[in-house]
Nucleic acid binder design. Structure first.
Lengths: 212, 212
DNA sequence: TGTACATCAGTGAACGCGCGTTCACTGATGTAC
DNA sequence: TGTACATCAGTGAACGCGCGTTCACTGATGTAC
């Protein structure tokens, strides 16, 4: 067997990574297979040695993202998994709703870059995307507690919607300053929500209010 | 002058409305001018009597949405503008984060249906989209008050991110049940945020805690 | 160690197709007489 | 009231182009001897 199987795997991974970046920047339909292969320093025809269809590659590109440590990309603040879950949740919010993440179009979370493309794609693609969402929800849920209004799980879903929504909106704006304001406001509210601190009651709200 | 100018205007509006629906359902790149014109019961060639380019039509389709009363589309709950601003904010959340809105793909808010397409489009398109966002932020801001953590404006931006993000995510899911859960959780938290009620402290939180 | 060979990753021309846009035209209409 | 006319909304063929996919091939490589 000429060429090692590592060689083929490495090529495959290179194609996936190039595709991920291009899809992020331009969207699924707007990127051609030619373009992806050229970026991977290959030619058009070879594509079908590695993938059955363009959409199969889309699935792989989304999954690839989940298998790296996403937060590494965006922020100087790395996720420190030795910390308590609540601290990790805060780190994730700070990294996700950051200017660095907004500016790094190639490295965007696919949830931010590709929601419309995914909504129109096949079941396989949508499942891969949903898996990313569920990972984020789980991460937040670990750092939260049930309260009288909502379970930790429900709070986590709402905070996920907030983080993704803030980035999705900021990414569309022509006016970068408005985008920064929106990200900042969203980040602050998300941080309050994981701290159980709202409406002017800092941190351990009960004591603070009673002793005032 | 043969044909009245009303006739031309009516045709133009018909094209815009057909385009809006098709863009919502399939995305900008995936809809052809042929398809839009056929739906408006016209033929391809006539398009350029009305619009300079396909992207110009995209701008008009986004703007058209703002000029209707959006909430009419989705929910039995209509916005009642005689109510106090806080009530309107709650009505908007209930209508926006609803199953009806999720199911009505043709009538989706463009913020939900088209963020990825807009992020990759030209300045004119992005300004039209940003205008929709600003309208929603303004609507929420009227129903909110500054608190010790954030201005009403900042809270409104975060709540807008939450509403749009919840719908954007739910729309991508293959698993409809998970989408419903996410919308419901997001809606509940958004309603709490406009009520200034969090973490198990109903309504006028200070008194409630102190008198407990 | 050196050579002949089989494998298959990668090549690039070709396929059928649909797109956005252009353009010469047609024919329904409102107006002037 | 009736007719001839000018306008321009709408038609449909044609344009050049790029796409996803297929396929016959080539040539770099690991292996057997």
């Amino acid at each position: 067997m000429p060429y090692t199987s590592e060689h083929k795997q490495a090529t495959r991974q290179r194609i996936i990574e190039c595709a991920r970046e291009l899809f992020n920047r331009k969207g699924f339909a707007e990127v051609s297979i030619d373009e992806i292969m050229a970026r991977a320093e290959l030619t058009r025809g070879g594509f079908y040695n590695h993938f059955k269809t363009k959409e199969d590659l889309f699935v792989e590109a989304i999954q690839a993202y989940a298998h790296n440590n996403p937060a590494d990309r965006w922020e100087d603040v790395e996720l420190d998994f030795s910390q308590p879950a609540e601290v990790i949740a805060r780190q994730l919010i700070n990294a996700y709703l950051s200017r660095t993440h907004l500016a790094d179009v190639d490295g965007h979370c696919p949830m931010v870059a590709l929601p419309s493309d995914v909504a129109r794609a096949s079941g396989k693609v949508r499942l891969a995307y949903q898996d990313l969402v569920e990972r984020m929800v789980r991460m937040f849920a670990m750092g939260l507690h049930d309260n009288h209004n909502q379970t930790a799980q429900d709070q986590a879903m709402a905070i996920t919607a907030m983080c993704v929504g803030g980035m999705v909106l900021a990414r569309t704006f022509e006016d970068a300053e408005f985008g920064d304001l929106l990200i900042k406001a969203t980040r602050e509210m998300a941080l309050q929500l994981v701290s159980g601190e709202q409406d002017g009651m800092p941190e351990a709200s009960f004591e603070t209010v009673v002793n005032a």
